[in-house]
């Protein structure tokens, strides 16, 4: 097109874009910056350059224990959410069960309902029925939060692929279970994979449900950071946070490899 957009508007847009991107990334960059400080207190720009806070974090059992808890929990959520979510999404996609729309709505409801409400409800129900909350309670809460993501990404993949594959497999002699195993699962694998990454990320970063269910056993990494922030933060918090940011970057690269970032945002 000839001179489609006026020049002044292009310049203004470019400036605005830079500002917005900076605004979005500033808190992350600052945290990473602080983590390399040599000083004893939190300061930005960092004073001097050192890895001493990373060394402190990695040698203190406190943070590594929390990281281990978070990691185990997140992996368990990834496996469970992928399995349950893929199964549910396949059934929802076929629309064979009566009330499929309502069931689908139920599965996606945690995306809309504020997680503080789920967290409070879980706390009350668990305490009344079983007493003290445990890591299992947090697992269940995170599972409810992660399921809709797996279901959504799987449904998205299923809805763009050939709707007749499963039927074609049936006409070629495959029974329902063989069709599921040999045709439908391979078909929705990219969606399940994307959902699995999200599930991991949600569980690893989640703080609301974990905070409500808080007990000594439930010291995940975000909880550990939150409690330190409430009282006396020092640069070791920045080092832990930076490690979490690096993990997120890694996760995003993996998602891009597996399914393509462009697709995820669609």
């Amino acid at each position: 097109m000839v001179d489609a957009i006026p020049r002044w508007l292009r310049l203004a847009t470019a400036a605005a874009l830079v500002l917005i991107v900076a605004y979005l990334l500033v808190p992350l960059l600052v945290v990473v910056g602080v983590s390399f400080t040599a000083a004893d207190y939190i300061s930005f720009p960092p004073q001097g350059l050192s890895l001493r806070w990373y060394a402190k974090v990695l040698s203190s059992g406190d943070f590594t224990d929390a990281a281990m808890t978070s990691l185990v929990l997140a992996v368990a959520i990834t496996v469970a959410a992928s399995a349950l979510g893929a199964g549910a999404a396949i059934v929802l996609h076929r629309r064979v069960l009566p009330g499929s729309a309502a069931i689908g709505g139920l599965f996606l409801a945690p995306l809309i309902l504020p997680s503080i409400i789920l967290a409070l409800g879980l706390l009350m129900l668990w305490s009344r029925s079983f007493g003290a909350t445990s890591l299992l309670t947090v697992f269940i809460g995170h599972l409810v939060l992660a399921l809709p993501y797996v279901i959504r990404t799987t449904l998205a993949v299923l809805s763009t692929s050939d709707p007749f594959l499963a039927e074609a497999a049936r006409t070629m002699g495959a029974g329902p279970w063989k069709t599921l195993w040999r045709v439908t699962l391979p078909q929705c694998l990219p969606g399940v994979a994307a959902g699995a990454f999200f599930a991991f990320n949600i569980s690893f970063d989640e703080a609301v449900v974990s905070l409500f269910l808080r007990s000594p056993e439930i010291t995940t990494l975000p909880i550990r950071i939150y409690t330190t922030l409430e009282y006396s933060p020092d640069p070791s918090i920045a080092a832990v946070s930076s490690l979490m940011i690096f993990l997120t970057v890694l996760l995003i690269l993996l998602i891009d490899r597996a399914v393509g970032l462009q697709k995820v945002t669609e």
Binding site: P163, A168, T171, M172, V183, Q187
Partner: peptide, 18 residues
């Protein structure tokens, strides 16, 4: 069920397993 009938079908979209 379809898998127990000795038939074969070609779909409009071909439905080749990707």
């Amino acid at each position: 069920p379809p898998e127990k009938r000795n038939i074969a079908m070609v779909f409009q979209s071909y439905a080749l397993l990707p």
